[in-house]
């Protein structure tokens, strides 16, 4: 029994799985209409944007030495604006009165997606360059990027949201493959891919090594600066993907989209067992963390509790999750 418990506790995802089960169980018993397939699927699709961002942020946190990306929410905003502005002709853009129905010009959509992700990756690259080459603390570098990218989003859109995206793009946000919503399928696919990259490739190994001990990595001939820059680029890319999903789900691009999402994504990563010290963590946990955040929001919606209570509960649960994780580590130490 004790060894079984120890084995369970050796997984860093154990606390978040435990928390999800507890909350789901409580909700199942006390909240009417909670345990319906539609509601559960809804919870999952609501978690997709934050979940995808959390995957990227997890990699940044793993890279160590205070690695963090505060700019992910702003990058989401600017990249989704860039996408919408590539698709929507300028003369129609300001036409906020009518919902546009644009034709599915696949070449334009492809171009828009490339620009969108390109902008995300470029912002990420700037973050990485400031951290790895200039040597700024990640907190400050990405804080500046957070301000600047949000400003850029508002500047190029003149602060105006735009509605009406081509149906094929909206399909990505609102439809299902068989019974899995496309955003959820995308989140799971990305999580699995990045999980494999993190645990099964030389790149993943060097990322864990760089985050766990930068000096040792240098002595082993690893490309420390390149690895650092790459994680910020990936994080920017995933923020842009999150932007695509969010825009597609809501059928609009808003310059204020994603405000505060970086903090939800960081919470998701930490809830999922990623250590702020760097060098250890997993993207599956991060996705579970995002699911958990959307899970606790759900009964609040169903029971018509004011949204405001959501944040205190979230804050308390984050603290509990970290305390649980500290306890878990203590327990799983071998004597």
């Amino acid at each position: 029994m004790a060894t079984a418990l120890k084995r369970i506790l050796s997984f860093k995802e154990a606390p978040i799985v435990f928390l999800i089960l507890v909350v789901a169980l409580l909700c199942g018993v006390f909240v009417p209409n909670f345990l319906t397939a539609a509601n559960l699927v809804n919870i999952l699709s609501q978690s997709a944007t934050v979940g995808i961002m959390a995957i990227g942020i997890t990699l940044v946190i793993i890279s160590g030495s205070g690695g963090i990306d505060l700019s992910a929410g702003s990058i989401l905003g600017v990249s989704s604006i860039v996408m919408a502005m590539t698709i929507i002709p300028p003369e129609l853009y300001r036409d906020t009165a009518a919902m546009l129905v644009l034709p599915n010009d696949y070449w334009v959509i492809f171009k828009a997606l490339v620009f969108c992700m390109g902008v995300g990756m470029f912002c990420g690259f700037l973050n990485g360059a400031m951290v790895a080459w200039v040597g700024l603390p990640p907190f400050i570098a990405t804080l500046a990027m957070m301000t600047a990218a949000r400003g850029l989003a508002a500047y190029i859109s003149a602060g105006i949201p735009t509605y009406g995206l081509p149906t094929s793009l909206v399909w990505v946000g609102q439809n299902s493959l068989w019974f899995v919503p496309v955003p959820v399928a995308l989140m799971i696919a990305l999580a699995v891919i990045v999980h494999i990259i993190l645990t099964r490739t030389t790149y993943g190994m060097s990322l864990l090594a760089v985050g766990g001990n930068r000096e040792t990595s240098r002595f082993c001939g690893m490309n420390v600066k390149g690895t650092l820059i790459s994680v910020y680029v990936i994080c920017g890319l995933f923020a842009a993907v999150g932007g695509v999903i969010l825009s597609a789900r809501s059928n609009q691009a808003h310059p204020d989209a994603g405000i505060g999402y970086e903090l939800s994504a960081i919470s998701a990563a930490v809830l999922g067992g990623t250590s702020m010290m760097g060098g250890s963590g997993g993207v599956l946990g991060a996705v579970l963390g995002a699911v958990f955040l959307s899970l606790i929001q759900n009964p609040i919606n169903l029971l018509n509790i004011p949204v405001a209570y959501m944040k205190p509960i979230m804050g308390a649960l984050i603290v509990i999750a970290v305390l649980l994780d500290q306890w878990r580590k203590k327990q799983s130490i071998g004597d």
């Binding site: 090594a209 766990g212 001990n213 000096e215 082993c220 001939g221 690893m222 250890s280």
Partner: peptide, 18 residues
């Protein structure tokens, strides 16, 4: 501790860094 090992990684992983 500071230059030779990556403390959080396993014996096998540390063995194969290079």
């Amino acid at each position: 501790k500071r230059q030779g090992i990556v403390p959080l990684m396993s014996v096998a992983e540390n063995m194969c860094h290079v």
